[in-house]
Nucleic acid binder design. Structure first.
Lengths: 246, 246
DNA sequence: CGAACACTTGATAAAAGTCAAACGACGTGG
DNA sequence: CCACGTCGTTTGACTTTTATCAAGTGTTCG
């Protein structure tokens, strides 16, 4: 059977900046070994020796750490097209765990394959560098949220962030989406208890800011949610024009 | 007068991985235009159009954001040899402000200079990519601290982090260092008020964990501080052996 | 059908914030 | 050279926010 090779990651990058065929081929090679992981399955365990990175092709993955007292901090929720586990480029022991939030397809590749990619395609190297800077900015937004905003603001910002990120790869999303996270997981993402997350969500529902039906969230008043959450969508107005031309 | 060109940044990188002369020369070019900024001076203002990045050669710089209610979140404190403002590689408007915490020397360079560097020296590009992943991991540590640890733990982790990072470039440091931050600035870094930071510091001083004399902090019991702060030094055990050889 | 799991709500406790006042160091201008 | 103002630190009293504990309500899935 004939099968057209695709790269989830290349598609994602191509939304930001045009890619040459050679670059696309290089990116496709990163996704040569798709692997299915069941919901709840561990993709990477903290402190394990790792030499692999991943492209997430389908489903959702979270990265997190567990502190000595047993509490969990979710560091990031990943969506299709995301580049995961780049910490293994500098650390031979994983600083964080990766678990599938749904049934997923991940494409692992060795960091030596990444090395080859960086050598062969400087422009892709630059893109990866930029992408990791974008991740850094997303992280600083969350840092500011955890350090300086109220529980309600964090929930609002969290919902908007999920929404905007999902919309990058799913054009069908208008004002509602499946969260596919428990309230406990939301809490572990934004530094709250599940109980308090619930109170905030209920309150926002009563105020008509959002509505819910079996796990699906509808954002009824985005302007106000953005105000409450001090949210700015970083996915708009990225500027990659200065990149080397291919 | 003859002057030997140096690169603070190259020196820093060379501690991780050997650099070729060509690579060193390329890095030196980034620092061709040193600029002095007085303590308190603004290097970059949030939302301003930016096309420059910086290498910090001397002194200390902080990046931060101000939220609509006026509260400030300090995102990162930078030390000599650090690479600053990389967000401008993707955003034409600065997502964060940069202010000198002491009299500093920064070396601005245009992102087009960075582009040339990436094109000419794939190995340096790879190094930058790795470095930004290291920053990302540092950020996740702080995220976990803000989200899931107590005020005391955050202060302990903050002090240890400063200590370990300063020691990278200053071999003379044994167990004490100049913080050069007000308690308000510490609070704005770790999501606490200055009042509460003070209480935690006073408490740790009474317990003999740390001592102070005119702005200089001495860490008396690092093992216990690490335990309290759930701290791991990420600067040890980085592994860059897999990088392309030059 | 029932066990497990997520959600919801109430009562109470703990952690950190706010407000206010006082102290000390430091630098500047009269 | 000293007086004064500014800034950072320290401490106390009180408030607010969020966590904790506990119990009850669906819902789903074997």
């Amino acid at each position: 059977m004939f099968w057209v090779a695709t790269s989830c990651f290349a598609e994602r990058l191509a939304k930001q900046v045009p890619l040459s065929d050679a670059e696309k081929r290089a990116l496709i090679r990163l996704e040569e070994n798709p692997r299915k992981v069941k919901r709840g399955g561990m993709i990477q365990r903290v402190n394990d020796t790792v030499t692999e990175l991943f492209v997430l092709r389908e489903g959702r993955v979270m990265s997190f750490v567990i502190l000595p007292d047993g509490s969990r901090q979710i560091l990031r929720v990943y969506f299709p097209g995301d580049f995961i586990g780049s910490a293994s480029t500098i650390y031979s022991k994983a600083p964080e765990s990766l678990v599938a939030l749904s049934d997923v397809i991940v494409c692992p590749f060795d960091k030596h394959a990444l090395r080859r990619l960086l050598e062969e395609s400087p422009r892709v190297a630059a893109l990866l560098f930029l992408l990791s800077n974008a991740e850094r900015v997303a992280m600083t937004d969350r840092l500011a949220a955890l350090g300086r905003t109220s529980a309600k603001a964090r929930v609002a910002a969290f919902l908007l962030d999920m929404f905007d990120r999902l919309r990058v790869t799913d054009d069908s999303i208008v004002d509602s989406f499946d969260l596919k996270l428990t309230q406990e997981e939301i809490g572990d993402s934004i530094g709250l208890t599940s109980v308090h997350v619930n109170r905030m969500i209920r309150q926002m529902e009563l105020e008509g800011l959002i509505s819910r039906s079996n796990g699906r969230i509808t954002l009824n008043d985005m302007a106000r949610l953005e105000e409450i959450g001090h949210y700015t969508n970083r996915l708009k107005d990225m500027d990659l024009d200065w990149l080397p031309v291919s």
